[in-house]
Structure formats: structure tokens, C-alpha cells
């Protein structure tokens, strides 16, 4: 789609805002509607849009495959380690109360970290799924579609 000028310009303008909105949904999730799942998908949407307009190879330069493989488990690890932190600090698994001296602040902190982990994993997984399909060599002829 290299020659679709309008598309390229519009998406170049849009992508930063999509990312910003993703971050908003991510970090505002504990006060209003939002959270890691939604944010992750929005975040991934930005990268997918980029890949669609500028090509898969270009997108791979932004986030290499290796980074994705690293990011997927990273989010999960953040989640699980927060859970274990609860145990280590004397509470139960995923107990946010003990994360800080004040239980309310602990809850706040806990849910932020957890959602961050979720967001990272979801975004990385969505991009991986897209890449897994888009990156496949053409096996289907034009006529077949």
C-alpha cells in the first residue's frame, strides 16, 4: 500500500494518538472503564495499523520478532511475580494489601502492576497473532479467494 498517500499520512498522524489512548486506558483502568486487556488491544492495533500501511518488514524493524517472544512471557512474569510478592510479604497469593504499608495504596499499586503485565502480554500476543498470519508466504492463489 506504499502508494496510498492519504492512508500513509493519516495513519502517521493517528498512530501516536492511538498509542496515547492505549496508555490512558491502561493507567486509568483502576478508576474508570479500562484496563490491561483493552489497552493491550488498542496498543496492538496501532502496531497492526502501522504494519498494514507500511508493510510487515517495516513493522519488524520497529518490534523485532525476538522482542515479541520476550515480551509475551514478560507480562505474564510481571503478573505472577506480583502474586508471589504477596506471599513473600506475608499475605496470600495476589494479596495486594501487603504491597504497601497502607492497604488501600497496596491495592492501588497491585492492580496497576498486574494490569501492566496484562497489557504487555495482550499487546505482544495480538501483534504476534497478526504477524503469524500476515508473515506467512503466499500459499493461496488470487483466484482462490
Amino acid at each position: 500500500m506504499r502508494h496510498h498517500l492519504i492512508l500513509r499520512v493519516v495513519s502517521k498522524m493517528l498512530i501516536p494518538f492511538i498509542l496515547l489512548f492505549g496508555l490512558y486506558v491502561q493507567f486509568h483502568g483502576d478508576f474508570g472503564p479500562g484496563g490491561g486487556f483493552q489497552a493491550g488491544v488498542i496498543f496492538a492495533a496501532a502496531f497492526i495499523l502501522y504494519a498494514l500501511v507500511f508493510g510487515d518488514d517495516q513493522a519488524r524493524k520497529v518490534i523485532p520478532d525476538k522482542a515479541l517472544i520476550l515480551l509475551v512471557p514478560m507480562g505474564l512474569l510481571i503478573y505472577a511475580l506480583t502474586g508471589f510478592a504477596g506471599i513473600l510479604l506475608g499475605g496470600k497469593f495476589l494479596d495486594y494489601d501487603v504491597l504497601s504499608s497502607d492497604p488501600t495504596q497496596g491495592q492501588h499499586l497491585g492492580i496497576l502492576v498486574i494490569e501492566l503485565g496484562v497489557g504487555i502480554t495482550v499487546a505482544a500476543v495480538m501483534i504476534s497473532i497478526f504477524r503469524a498470519y500476515a508473515g506467512r508466504t503466499k500459499a493461496i492463489d488470487k483466484e482462490d479467494w
Binding site: 486487556f37 495482550v122 493461496i140
Partner: peptide, 23 residues
Amino acid sequence: LTAIVVGISTTALGLALVVRIRE
């Protein structure tokens, strides 16, 4: 929300299998 995530995973996996079956 959880169920949606499960649904997406299922769809993704199912489609991946379809791609491989097609191949």
C-alpha cells in the same frame, strides 16, 4: 472479559490450524 480472551485465543488457534490444514 476473561471469556472473550479465551474466545480470541480459540479463534486464533483455530484459524492457525486452518492455515496449516490448507497447507
